[in-house]
C-alpha cells in the first residue's frame, strides 16, 4: 500500500506541485489539503502516514517567516499533531515549512517537547532573500530517517530567513549531542563552513537541516523538491558531457527515504 502524505496548502505556501510530484515519484500517495479544510476537520490527519509543511511564503513572511501559519496550526491542530507524532508518523518541512515547524516547536523537539520553540530561523546575515545552489554535508550519526545514507548533495536555497539561531547555547549543545543537526552547509570539499556564500545565511554550526531526536521529524532550508530532474542542476550541461548526470534529480532521495521508512 502506498503511504498517504498530507500536504497542507493555502495562505501563501507555494511548492505544492513539485512537493506532490516528489512524493508520487517516491512511491507515496500525496493529498493536498487547504489549511482551512484541515482546520475544519483536524481528525482527517489520522488517515495519513506522513505530513509535509511545504515551502513558500505563508502569510507573505509577515511578522517573521512561518510565524502566523505556525500560530494557526498550533491553535487548532495541536492535539492531532501530538497524536500524529505519538503514532510514529513522519513529518517533513522544507524552507517555509521548516520555519513553520521551528515556530511551532516541532523542531528540534528536544525532550519530547513539540510545542515549545527552542530555535528560530532568522534573517540571513546578508539581509535579504537569495536563490542559488549550495553543497550540503549530512551527519552520518544522525537519527534522521530522511537523510539516511547521505554524504553530500547539492541543492538550491531560496530564502531570506534561514539562519538557525538561539541565545541558549545548551540547546545547540543538545542538538549536536543527539545528532539532530542532520544537514549542514559545506564547501566544495564537503567541509561544513561558516563562510558566505557556501554558508548562505550564517547559520549556527552551519546547520541547514534539523531533525528531532526520533529522526522522524525533519526540516531543512534547501529545496530537495526542486531537484527532481537531473536538468535542475545548474551544471547539468557539463554533467551530461562528462557522464556524471544522474538518472534522476538527487533531491528525490529524501522522499524515497521517507516512503521506505513508512513501508518498512
Amino acid at each position: 500500500m502506498k503511504p498517504k502524505i498530507l500536504i497542507i496548502t493555502g495562505y501563501g505556501v507555494n511548492c505544492e506541485a513539485e512537493s506532490s510530484r516528489a512524493w508520487e515519484l517516491a512511491g507515496g500517495s500525496p493529498v493536498k489539503v487547504h489549511l482551512n479544510d484541515l482546520l475544519d476537520n483536524p481528525a482527517q490527519m489520522r488517515d495519513f502516514h506522513g505530513l509535509m509543511f511545504i515551502g513558500g511564503f505563508s502569510y507573505g513572511d509577515h511578522m517573521t517567516s512561518g510565524h502566523v501559519f505556525a500560530l494557526r496550526v498550533k491553535h487548532h491542530l495541536r492535539e492531532e499533531l501530538q497524536k500524529f507524532i505519538d503514532d510514529k508518523k513522519i513529518i517533513l518541512g522544507v524552507c517555509n515549512g521548516f520555519q513553520t515547524m521551528t515556530k511551532i516547536g516541532l523542531l528540534p523537539g528536544l525532550n519530547g517537547e513539540y510545542f515549545e520553540p527552542k530555535v528560530s530561523l532568522m534573517q540571513n546575515d546578508c539581509g535579504h532573500f537569495q536563490n542559488f545552489w549550495v553543497n550540503l554535508k549530512f551527519e552520518a550519526q544522525s537519527p534522521c530517517i530522511f537523510t539516511k545514507g547521505f554524504d553530500t548533495m547539492p541543492l538550491p536555497i531560496r530564502h531570506g530567513e534561514g539562519k538557525i539561531f538561539t541565545t541558549d547555547a545548551k540547546v545547540i549543545e543538545q542538538i549536536e549531542a543527539l545528532g539532530c543537526a542532520a544537514a549542514r552547509y559545506a564547501d566544495a570539499d564537503g567541509n561544513p563552513t561558516k563562510d558566505f556564500p557556501a554558508n548562505p545565511n550564517g547559520s549556527l554550526n552551519a546547520i541547514a537541516g534539523l531533525c528531532d531526536p526520533t529522526g522522524r521529524i525533519f526540516g531543512l532550508m534547501p529545496h530537495p523538491e526542486a531537484y527532481l530532474f537531473p536538468e535542475n542542476h545548474p551544471n547539468w550541461d557539463v554533467q551530461k558531457l562528462n557522464g556524471t548526470l544522474p538518472a534522476q534529480g538527487l533531491g528525490l532521495k529524501f522522499f524515497e527515504n521517507g516512503v521506505k521508512y513508512l513501508v518498512g
Binding site: N131, F132, H223
Partner: peptide, 14 residues
C-alpha cells in the same frame, strides 16, 4: 539572485 528562479522545480537552462 534575490529573485526566486526555481520554485516549481521546472527550470532547465537558468
Amino acid at each position: 539572485r534575490i529573485y526566486d528562479g526555481e520554485v516549481k522545480g521546472l527550470s532547465v537552462v537558468k
